[in-house]
Design a protein around this nucleic acid. Structure first.
Lengths: 144, 144
DNA sequence: TTTATAATTAGAATAATTCTATTTTAATTG
DNA sequence: CAATTAAAATAGAATTATTCTAATTATAAA
């Protein structure tokens, strides 16, 4: 086997799935593995390629299903940029995204609790946010 | 004619286009009119329907072209929500978006300069943001 | 006016995502 | 530990969103 989830992550996945009455299948586990292993922001297509190294027969539809399930379970986040396919992100800590127009690279930008609180102040009374997606586009002038 | 741009808006459009060496065509003017007139967040399809009341023969490709041009000119912003077609927004003041999961309605949430400054603090040294897209998803419990 | 170039157009092509019908698998129960 | 049942996976078609292409039309400049 190429890689596998830590016991902690595996348990987290199983608990989250059970909490929703869903089954821990090898496809779901493998998609989650792939997402956790390389902390970038793959599209569904890229996830398919990576998962196929473990499960050569998995279909794109299943990848979409699994990703949707993981998002519903709160284990993965979706990231949107203008006119571009959805990307998926395993980082559950509060953060924003920055896409460099030069390189296409996407960076996670951590947000401290203070900033997060500040952000929430723009919500009017009666607006309850379940999640947010904050994306910057611009350029970076130094290597990260 | 059903409606038209104010002189100020028309002048702004023409100036912006000229600044980029682009021509003020009736299609571009009409798409801009439609976007300014109803301050919601239409998809390209919805823009097509509205513009066709003025220009019955305009094509979807042209609508996409015009919208892209307006975005490039900084007169219109794109708004992204998970797995949903791009929406277009005429509000150029700093603001975020909130999509209500109950009604599907999208609200503009103004951001004061202070909040905007605070947001920028999450950008590391060397990251220059050209624009940002902040979207909340959640529910509203009162009529706006 | 003519000319050169840009923009529009229709429709085809592509890309992203979802749906459908069938098969397989996991969990449950006798 | 079989048989059952319901969920999930699968292939591929369908749909939706967006882009591209090649031909036509319109704009601006000379």
């Amino acid at each position: 086997m190429a890689f596998s989830l830590t016991d902690k992550d595996k348990e987290g996945l199983n608990r989250a799935l059970k909490g929703k009455g869903l089954r821990p299948t090898k496809q779901r586990t493998s998609v989650y593995e792939v997402i956790l292993r390389k902390k970038d922001h793959p599209t569904a297509d890229e996830v398919l390629l990576r998962v196929r190294r473990e499960l050569p027969t998995i279909s794109l539809a299943t990848v979409y299903n699994c990703l949707e399930t993981l998002v519903d379970c709160g284990l993965v986040r979706q990231v949107n940029f203008d006119r571009a396919p959805t990307r998926f992100c395993p980082n559950l800590t509060p953060h924003a995204h920055f896409k460099c127009t030069r390189t296409g690279e996407i960076f996670d930008l951590p947000m401290d609790p203070n900033t997060l609180e500040h952000l929430k102040t723009i919500l009017p009374k009666g607006f309850l946010a379940e999640n947010f997606d904050l994306s910057f586009v611009g350029s970076t002038n130094q290597l990260q």
